[in-house]
């Protein structure tokens, strides 16, 4: 497990669109917290504009989107909007039920990683931590 950090990673865990099943995102948020990260957690049903504003104001390193139905179809719009808002350094990950053909589409649109059911705590924490460090390096340029 990652030890306590002087500058905790900041992660936004959210759900876009219409679905409201949030067991997965709650469990992941708790894992990330227990790994020493600061997790901004939202209610489900966010729209892309809201997530961008939130990511900007909260200055997060990673945005995690949980999708159980088809809400991940909105994620390409999110990556595009983040880039337009000058937040291209923020890494976007998706977790949940994502069909294979959609996964390649998401990767092409700039999603860094897709977690599927069965991803372990270690995998999730390590991946998010690495992505967050990369995001911060890219933004701070040092």
């Amino acid at each position: 497990m990652i030890s306590r950090r002087a500058e905790p990673v900041r992660v936004l865990v959210t759900k876009l669109g219409l679905d409201g099943h949030d067991r997965g995102s709650r469990v992941v948020a708790a894992f990330l917290r227990d790994a020493g990260m600061e997790v901004i957690y939202t209610s489900p049903w966010q729209d892309v504009t809201a997530v961008v504003q939130l990511a900007l104001q909260e200055d997060v390193d990673v945005v995690g989107v949980s999708s159980l139905a088809t809400d991940h179809l909105l994620v390409p719009k999110l990556t595009e909007a983040l880039a337009q808002a000058g937040l291209g350094h923020i890494r976007v990950v998706v977790g949940g039920i994502v069909p294979d053909e959609d996964e390649s589409m998401l990767k092409r649109s700039g999603v860094s990683h897709v977690f599927h059911p069965g991803s372990t705590r270690e995998e999730i924490v390590a991946e998010v931590d690495a992505l967050a460090r990369a995001a911060r390096r890219e933004r701070d340029g040092d």
């Binding site: 950090r5 948020a29 990330l32 227990d34 790994a35 600061e38 901004i40 957690y41 966010q46 939130l54």
Partner: peptide, 16 residues
């Protein structure tokens, strides 16, 4: 852990 879940965003949805 030093981590935190910052959940007050939840109720601010209408100003999102």
């Amino acid at each position: 852990s030093g981590g935190a879940v910052l959940g007050d965003r939840i109720r601010m949805a209408e100003h999102a």
